[in-house]
């Protein structure tokens, strides 16, 4: 019996090793095996994964992406990956030219990335065009910024607001909130904040306050929420409460009790100087 158990464990270990080996093999090559053997896409895919072994944007990686694109010109991921360091380093013409090629091949996979950089560059019209195509034509149900922290509808909503159509921004945020009804675990850290800002910009202060209060239940360390609550109280001529919120905002911006601010909301970003100005008014 002991011998049988030993044999069983050995067999189990062997199976486990084979399984791990296969998983490593499959995932080590990403999804390259879905392409036919000897196809340009398979080779381009493998070269692209080799490129990722080098530092992003390094000469070695860029040359491997070039090779991948040459062998498999229909392999979109290589164009996308090659574009990333150009965008990050302010070389937008090169970045856009590369991501355009990825989008020609697989718009449903890469529109979000171009839209992200359009938003970042305040090209709000182009950002709106890409994201509305993504969510309507390609029926994307949930996709985030490259860092994974904001659902792209936040950017779409802010882009509309920046283009002067705040109600359309609110529409897209409500569209996103409906999506969360099915899967509330997907809700991000700043969704209520974003909707609150849009209501505020649309002079719907009561609705804005509701969203900011919800935001505090999600994350009470984010300074900007207190700033906007302060603005709402100031509008309501409740200066004592307004000043209290501004003080809390400043404390959070100074990092007290884990407080923080962040600059992801472009024109809606709040700086310490903005808060100090309200405190001095």
């Amino acid at each position: 019996m002991v011998r049988l158990n030993m044999w069983y464990y050995k067999y189990l270990c062997l199976l486990l090793f084979v399984f791990i080996g296969n998983v490593n093999f499959l995932f080590g090559q990403g999804n390259c095996l879905i392409y036919p053997e000897d196809s340009g896409e398979r080779k381009a895919c493998e070269l692209s994964y080799r490129a990722l072994e080098h530092r992003q944007g390094s000469k070695e990686s860029q040359l491997l992406f070039d090779e991948a694109i040459k062998i498999g010109p229909k392999y979109a991921w290589a164009y996308y990956q090659k574009s990333v360091p150009f965008f990050k380093r302010g070389l937008f013409a090169e970045g856009i030219s590369l991501i355009n090629k990825a989008i020609e091949l697989e718009p449903w996979n890469y529109l979000y990335y171009r839209a992200y950089w359009y938003f970042y560059n305040r090209s709000y019209g182009y950002c709106i065009k890409d994201l509305e195509e993504l969510y309507t034509v390609h029926e994307e149900s949930y996709t985030t910024t490259p860092g994974g922290d904001l659902e792209m509808r936040l950017l779409l909503a802010m882009a509309h607001a920046q283009s002067g159509d705040v109600p359309k921004g609110i529409y897209w945020m409500q569209h996103l909130m409906e999506r969360y009804e099915q899967e509330p675990q997907l809700k991000g850290l700043y969704d209520h904040f974003c909707l609150g800002v849009l209501y505020y910009k649309n002079n719907q202060f009561d609705l804005a306050e509701v969203e900011f209060e919800k935001q505090l239940t999600v994350d009470d360390k984010f300074a900007d929420t207190y700033y906007y609550l302060g603005l709402i109280k100031a509008k309501a001529a409740n200066n004592t409460l307004a000043q209290d919120y501004f003080k809390q905002a400043l404390a959070k911006m100074n990092g007290e009790n884990g407080g923080y601010s962040r600059n992801s909301f472009e024109a809606f970003n709040i700086y310490k100087e903005d808060v100090e100005k309200m405190l001095n008014d």
Binding site: K59, L63, R89, G90
Partner: peptide
């Protein structure tokens, strides 16, 4: 990888 002049050490 023969091309040593097309790209700098690092993009940017």
């Amino acid at each position: 990888i023969t091309d040593t002049s097309k790209y700098p050490r690092h993009v940017g």
